[in-house]
């Protein structure tokens, strides 16, 4: 009985002393932090993806509170909904932002772009890019080692084993831009999601001259300029042997897609073309 009593008393005393120390320390060394920072951090996705440009979600929360306005601030992962909530907490106005998505601009699948050597080095695009030209004759296209996949915090990008190319799940993608940074060949671009998820873009980044690009891949951009002529909105430019569609100017008319002789321009999430539209329908298969 004595033993139990001693134990209870001694443990109780230790607990009491520790509690007092903790209480004094918490009072003495307390640092004032704006409670709104915690509130803002609460509504953020806590993925710490860095897509906002600040070091993690708490960094972004602090910046939002301290700046006094939400101008130019966007949490790409949380999107407009999160920004609205933050605006409500801080009593500010959220800036309207356009939802964006990562777009992989290479269609060099095993079928389109023949493999001419076997790469057996470390499974890392960075290494493959720095030490050899990759497995194909295209020095610009996807290397297929999946650096973008391993860097994605949202499981939004996956390798398709059939094509050997990464595919973005537009629903999961938050356009944080981690994959853009990870890709040593700058293949991935953050583009606006577009109305009804519809996008038209050049699915190639090859800057080689026409004949070289032609040989390397079935669906490479050869900078023929047909799309530039076809476009009524001056949205397409050709620079360094590569066409680029400016998403701000593009009206999603899909005329360029139809004229591209290499099928390098793609339009996604459009309903299938009606057969009655004569010109493009006949031209497209010919180009294949």
């Amino acid at each position: 009985m004595d033993l139990i009593l001693v134990a209870v008393i001694s443990l109780g005393a230790i607990g009491l002393i520790a509690a007092v120390i903790l209480y004094v320390a918490s009072k003495k060394f307390a640092v004032y932090e704006d409670p709104r920072i915690a509130q803002v951090a609460e509504v953020l996705p806590q993925a710490n993806c860095g897509g906002c440009g600040y070091p993690g979600c708490s960094g972004f929360a602090e910046a939002c509170v301290k700046a006094g306005s939400l101008e130019g601030k966007l949490c790409p992962a949380g999107g407009q909904a999160a920004m609205e909530k933050i605006a409500a907490i801080l009593g500010l106005q959220a800036e309207a932002s356009e939802p964006k998505v990562a777009v992989v601009r290479c269609n060099g699948s095993c079928e389109n772009r023949p493999r001419i050597v076997k790469y057996d080095g470390a499974q890392s695009c960075k290494v493959a890019h720095a030490t050899c030209g990759g497995e194909t004759a295209c020095a610009f296209g996807c290397l297929g080692c999946g650096d973008c996949v391993s860097v994605c915090r949202f499981d939004a990008i996956r390798m398709n084993p059939e094509t050997g190319l990464p595919e973005v799940d537009a629903d999961k993608c938050t356009a944080c831009g981690a994959c853009v940074k990870a890709c040593p060949r700058n293949i991935i671009e953050i583009r606006p999601k577009g109305k009804n998820n519809r996008r038209v873009y050049v699915n190639c980044v090859n800057k080689d001259k026409g004949p070289v690009a032609m040989k390397a891949c079935k669906v490479s951009c050869i900078a023929c300029g047909k799309c530039v002529k076809e476009c009524s909105f001056e949205a397409i430019t050709v620079e360094n042997n590569l066409a680029y569609i400016d998403p701000a100017k593009c009206r999603l008319c899909r005329k360029c897609e139809a004229v591209c002789p290499k099928n390098a321009i793609v339009a996604v999430n459009f309903p299938p073309r009606k057969p009655k539209v004569e010109a493009p329908a006949t031209e497209a298969p010919k180009a294949e």
Partner: peptide
Amino acid sequence: PLLDMIRL
């Protein structure tokens, strides 16, 4: 792939 990574 030690050297591959070291090269990078």
